[in-house]
Design a protein around this nucleic acid. Structure first.
Lengths: 384, 384
DNA sequence: GTGAAAGCGCTAACAG
DNA sequence: CTGTTAGCGCTTTCAC
């Protein structure tokens, strides 16, 4: 560990500070070099944070008038309105969100609870949500469960504390039941699931038609001449994975191909798991000419493993994934997959949630709805 | 567009509702089929949201006692503390964040303003931030500028409205000056930049040693025998890209290789731009045996373009990127790159910000610091 | 048109 | 140990 002083001036007066600094540095990982630049201390005069009262006092009006003026209340004279707005701008007045939200009972904020944003699918959904929320003047509060039920419960509960007007959620891989979500229903807070939904809860959902996507994928494999099609399934208790398995089974049977349980592997959604499943397939010595995987990552694992064993894709083996992650277009061969319209899913979910919030605010009954998006088969070079 | 009714019961009573529903559907894109399921109306009795006063009344104590009990104030008797906590739990009491934050003057919330989360680098930084913030009991408010200065300004200003105790920011590609950030300084709100920082602002920063990373990358190319090394530079006004270009130039000169301006392309950070630059290189008819790109996406564009033109990588041409995006390990050949320690950058930035918030709360002077992380050369198969 | 006053839910000073 | 009171900054009756 190394410290470099850039500041050329004698540091005498800063010595004390620096000791604290050095202590803090001890926490840092040793793969990094820390170059600590001690700028001149920030002695900018602390500007007061202005409130409505400050504006009011300045103009010799009351706070309520100032408030009304800023909100373009027609009962306030045009002159006062202009004065207030101008002063507010020149003072760089920022209304206190908390006070406003507390008083009004709503802060125009929606919560988003999802497993993690560092997956392209979820990041895209988020973008769709962001788009609509911004249009509608809503703020978005994002929480990541990192696939942990414990964290999900904590977050769901703490989001309940008055900060949000409604919740968009996609459950963690560990979640099977959702008492922490039922609270939203019983407190009358709109809740909309997207993608990974809890089937039994009577709330709105926006999901992909996973069954159809799987069916199309498998039909595509069959059409291109495959007959012995293996399936990498996800955890069975999550609806979307169950539906993908259902589509797989139905596509086979409808085409007069018998379902071979030996060819179905459960809980395979990571690259490593995909690789392991591929190895097992080869060791078993069974015949197979295609894999339909519930996810792109496990498809990738299988593909890499197959290639390492001299299997040519798609000549000897066709592989199709699910999700259409961007890397699918970059690998060799490019990966066929099912696109989930993530952006649109986010837009729909946000639109639905906001409409439910509006209904609720008008004291109208909210009827849970289910919006099912149509999957899109993306054929690339990993299938024939 | 198609509607399918799953509900088998006569829909008479829902007809009116359905008209509204149908109208909403008009907004939906036509690539999707919407399957609208009308569940039975949600008639769960609306549970009241409990306040401290409800708890207090129930136990015949005052609200302040209840508040103190929940906060484990030692002045409250153990008995009362237990009673309050138990009742709170059984009523599923959730403190109102807004009221607490308003009264206390702090809601233990930090804001994060970044270009977009649907890039792995930023998502990873976010994860690091999330980790530390959670540990320290802070909430995180995420805002995306989508590389738009306008949006960045709006967000920076609206974040100023009392909701946050400090801001972590990475500026948009359009940002050259930051009056919207200077406000934080003048209002005494801690501000820490990460990765894309505004150089002239005297605030804390956590960045990668881009110069060093670039130098190492180019040195690696030289060591492996390359002499005519092209550079895809980013927008010059952003410090990190300028530093990468600096490292490139210095590595060449220190090794006695003359810098050829013809081999330097500016503003090349997307896949398309990388492809265009590659084409131009080939058309120019100049000799070149390597490319050092400021980003992985532009490196990818060059690689694909080169391969399409029968250039073998790394035999005929070495390519090295910057960022170590995950796709680099998946493409053929795998892409050499510079890892930016995104997760660690997030951790450091959050740690630094929180320490500044604490200092400020103790009315101590905050000295801006600059933490420079050490880059890591990741050698894969796109270089020799 | 505008102001005074009350209060959203919580906490902190001041009493006792 | 606990209650009373005041007030964070805003909006919203209810007056005039």
């Amino acid at each position: 560990m190394k410290f470099i002083f850039i500041n050329k001036k004698p540091m005498q007066s800063f010595a004390q500070k620096y000791i604290t600094l050095a202590k803090i540095f001890i926490f840092y990982r040793n793969f990094s070099i820390f170059l600590s630049v001690l700028f001149s201390a920030n002695l900018v005069p602390q500007v007061k944070k202005y409130t409505l009262r400050d504006i009011a006092k300045e103009l010799n009006i009351s706070a309520s008038t100032a408030s009304r003026a800023l909100h373009d209340n027609p009962r306030i004279s045009a002159l006062v309105r202009r004065q207030v707005k101008e002063l507010a701008k020149s003072m760089d007045y920022q209304p206190d969100f908390r006070a406003m939200s507390l008083r009004r009972g709503s802060g125009r904020t929606i919560g988003v609870l999802l497993p993690q944003v560092d997956r392209y699918f979820f990041a895209s959904v988020l973008r769709g949500i962001d788009e609509i929320s911004t249009e509608e003047g809503y703020n978005v509060l994002i929480c990541q469960s990192y696939e942990s039920l414990q964290k999900e419960e904590d977050l769901a509960r703490s989001l309940l504390n008055g900060r949000i007007d409604g919740l968009l959620a996609s459950v963690s891989i560990e979640t099977r039941v959702g008492p922490h979500f039922e609270q939203y229903v019983s407190k009358g807070l709109p809740l909309v699931f997207f993608d990974r939904a809890l089937d039994y809860l009577k709330v709105s959902k926006v999901v992909l038609d996973d069954y159809k996507g799987a069916y199309q994928a498998v039909q595509h494999l069959i059409d291109s001449g495959c007959r012995r099609i293996a399936h990498f399934a996800g955890p069975g208790h999550i609806e979307i994975y169950a539906n993908r398995a259902g589509g797989y089974i139905d596509a086979l049977t409808k085409n007069g191909i018998q379902v071979d349980p030996e060819l179905i592997f459960s809980g395979v959604i990571t690259q490593e798991a995909g690789c392991r499943a591929m190895k097992r397939l080869m060791e078993m010595g069974v015949k197979f000419d295609a894999i339909f995987s519930s996810g792109d990552y496990s498809a990738l694992g299988a593909m890499v493993c197959a290639q390492q064993n001299g299997i040519d894709i798609p000549r000897d083996l066709s592989i199709i994934g699910f999700s259409n992650e961007p890397f699918g277009a970059l690998i060799q061969p490019t990966l066929s997959s099912i696109d989930q319209h993530a952006l649109e899913m986010g837009r729909q979910a946000a639109t639905l949630l906001i409409s439910e919030i509006n209904l609720k605010n008008k004291n109208q009954t909210v009827f849970p709805r289910k919006i099912i998006l149509d999957p899109q088969l993306v054929i690339r070079n990993s299938t024939r």
